[in-house]
Computed example of a mutant assay.
Amino acid sequence: MSDHPTDPATETFVAHRNLLFTVAYEMLGSAVDAEDVLQETWLRWVKVDLAQVQDQRAYLVRITTRQSLNRLRSMTRRKEAYVGPWLPEPMLTAPDVAEDVELAESVSMALMLVLETLSPTERAVFVLREAFDVSYDEIAAAVDKSPAAVRQIAHRARRHVDARRPREAVSPGETRAALESFRRVLDTGDLQGLLDVLAPEVVLMGDGGGIKRAALRPISGAENVARFMIGGIGKNKLPMTVTPTMVNGTPALLVHLDGEVDGVMAIRVEDGRITGLYYVRNPEKLTHIESETPLTLR
């Protein structure tokens, strides 16, 4: 037994920390900002009179949601000044995240990008309701809306997301197969092979954040994407290695140039072909790809 027992507030916070981080990350798309939100949540939690709290988990989720909403509104201004497309921060995740289909989809790059198109309140309501199955009454308390208003927001957000998310769930095996084909043609520089693995309507988004070279606008269409990728590889004089990894619960590729991490490639797959290609090169967003980040919906 430890000679230094922790206090009840700390025990409760630690017990729910992974859940709170997942809530904040799904709302913000940034692991760095999610960590800051957890710190803010902790500072408020230790001032709470626990004797007055009936459901400590719900109370912690409420604090985290409010702090995430505050952060999300300030992030909107940062994104407006961001150089080029803004992509969610990728995180190395454990195999058990991929095995939890619901969790893997909720933190996938493809869905996180769809969530970017929601307003801050819509995103909070959608995440809490759809991913974490929080009651309408609890969500209402977290976002300072009536339960009736929250139901309407949830319906509107769900309809918006459903219109933009992948039509069918894709297994990790199918994603892994598409990635392996993609990796092979990158190694060979085979333009036709790349065209074969890309869907005609594929969209490439690169995030260099003004620090690393990346396309300043999304590139659409298989031929345009293929030529951009092959051209970029042709201009690169440094030795490149591309290795499989698991990011945000989904198979992805980790790219090294001359032995240094250059970025993470995640994809969206439909009908066996790549419809979305997301390349995060901004080094400020690559701090969570060397060690696994624990995530949970419970």
Rank of each mutant, 00 (worst) to 15 (best):
R77T: 15
I139E: 01
R71T: 04
E116I: 07
T121D: 12
T121A: 09
E116H: 12
E122N: 10
L128K: 03
L103G: 01
K79M: 12
M75C: 02
T117N: 11
V83G: 00
P90M: 09
L115F: 05
R73Y: 10
L115T: 02
S135E: 05
A104T: 08
S74I: 10
T117K: 14
V83D: 12
A81H: 14
R73C: 12
V83F: 06
A81V: 12
L103F: 07
R123H: 04
E138C: 00
V134D: 03
Y82Q: 11
T121F: 05
K79A: 13
D133I: 01
L111E: 11
L111R: 13
L115K: 06
S119R: 14
P90E: 02
V125L: 03
S135Y: 03
L115G: 01
T76V: 15
G84H: 05
L115Y: 08
E122S: 13
R78V: 10
A131P: 01
A81I: 09
A94N: 10
L92V: 09
F132M: 04
E102S: 13
E102V: 09
M75D: 11
R123I: 04
A81K: 15
S106T: 09
M75V: 08
K79W: 12
S106W: 07
L111T: 05
R77Y: 13
V134Q: 06
V83K: 09
A94S: 12
T76L: 15
V127E: 04
P95D: 07
R123S: 06
E105T: 10
M112P: 00
V97R: 02
A124I: 03
S108T: 09
L87M: 07
V114S: 00
L128F: 07
L72Q: 10
R71Y: 00
R78K: 14
A124Y: 01
M109I: 15
P85D: 01
R71V: 07
T93A: 08
R129A: 02
P88A: 14
D133M: 05
A110M: 09
L118G: 01
E122A: 11
E80V: 07
M109A: 14
V127H: 03
R77I: 15
A98E: 13
A98K: 03
L87I: 08
V97G: 02
V101E: 15
F132W: 03
S119G: 13
L92N: 09
E99M: 13
E105P: 03
R78F: 13
R78I: 06
T93G: 09
L111F: 10
E105F: 13
L103K: 01
R78A: 12
S74E: 11
V107N: 04
E116K: 13
Y136H: 04
D133S: 05
V114H: 04
E80K: 15
R129Y: 04
E99W: 00
I139T: 05
T117P: 04
E99H: 12
M75E: 11
T121G: 00
L87Q: 00
L113H: 00
V134E: 06
E102D: 12
L128H: 05
I139R: 02
E130F: 06
T76W: 10
V134A: 04
A110T: 15
I139K: 01
E102G: 13
L118N: 02
P85F: 05
E122L: 08
V114L: 05
M112W: 00
A124L: 08
M112L: 13
V83T: 12
